[in-house]
Simulated scan of single mutants.
Amino acid sequence: MTRRAYAVEQAGGPVQVREYEPEPLGPLEVEVAVTHSGICHTDLGMIDDEWGISNFPVVAGHEAVGVVEALGDAVDRTRLAVGQRVGVGATAGSCFACEWCLSGRQQLCPAKDNVVVRGTGGAFASHVRAGDWRHVQPIPDVIASEHAGPFLCAGTTVFPPLLHHSVRPTDRVAVVGIGGLGHLAIQFLAKWGCHVTAISSTPGKSDDARRFGAHDFVATNEGTGLDRVSNSFDFVLSTVSADLLWDAYLATLRPRGTLCVLGLPNGALTVTPLSLLPGERTLVGGVTGSPTETRQMLDFAARHDIRPQVEVFPATRMDEALDHVRRGRAHYRAVLEL
């Protein structure tokens, strides 16, 4: 049966509809008819060849929600069924044989099926195929499809650090950046029980930050800026794709605090030794979570009524939607209805 994909033939677009005939389904694969797909900044990075790794034509999209249409012969039918609503996120398969997979850290598998950098076969299409059914996520009934997509990248990026770094409900934490990742991070941390401070270069986002659950707000373009929160936080989550004054953010940590960087800075991440060593502070990075962590994140979001704030665009307005995200105008995630 002919499939439809929204492809970009050269850096920067525009999107063109391409039709193709799918390959036979592999034994572990799952074919999903896509109804919604979130738009992530990484999708724009591939479409615009921001990192020089794109192979055109590019079919982007890695936050797919839809309905299972076909299952490979080796898929566990007790876990997935034709007609079931599911999500396919940034990682759609892994080897399940390396040390990382066997220890439950499939997101670190060297052979993982990374939908973000596939180039073809992304979620901006009528169908998306997961390389391994164990990476396909059933969507809780209470989460609408237009809300589910952003959880499959943004949600599973900001939630696992709470587990990895033993963030406690008694901790004082900060989220840097109130955007697609940051507005979900604030909600997760507030429901986790933490005292949350939102940090932004945009003072006008104060009301939104508090609506998402922040208890305090710091505008970095004001005179006092980060000075008033020096030595304040046990954990700081940076969600911005920008070069920051890293020593200044490390100075906001209490002794043995952790700065976790999730956004992708443009330049080198440089710190002075005195920002780290005397206080035994930690600087770490993060990526999307494992299948287990993604399921835990979806369950937590369903239980605590956490949702992304989205703007929904029909497929006929895909170029407009992509440019909307490209210009930083999305409040706070853009989602395509396919």
Rank of each mutant, 00 (worst) to 15 (best):
A251N: 14
R326M: 12
D208S: 13
G267A: 05
W100T: 05
R281M: 09
T42A: 06
H36Y: 14
L338D: 02
R333Y: 11
H324V: 03
G72E: 04
G225F: 08
D208Q: 06
V284T: 15
A321D: 11
R295E: 15
G285K: 08
L245S: 12
C260I: 08
G155D: 15
L244H: 14
F300A: 00
H195N: 03
S206N: 12
P169L: 09
E311F: 00
H164Q: 14
G12F: 04
V158W: 02
P203W: 12
G155P: 15
T156Q: 09
A251R: 14
D305L: 08
V218N: 07
R303C: 02
V167C: 01
G257F: 03
A92S: 15
R326L: 15
L245I: 01
V58D: 11
L250D: 00
R327T: 14
G45S: 11
G131Y: 00
V236L: 05
A185I: 14
Y249W: 15
R210T: 08
G193A: 04
R118A: 07
L338R: 10
L283S: 02
I53W: 06
D208Y: 10
D247S: 01
T42W: 10
E21D: 13
K205Q: 14
F217D: 13
L189F: 01
L25N: 05
F124A: 03
Y332M: 15
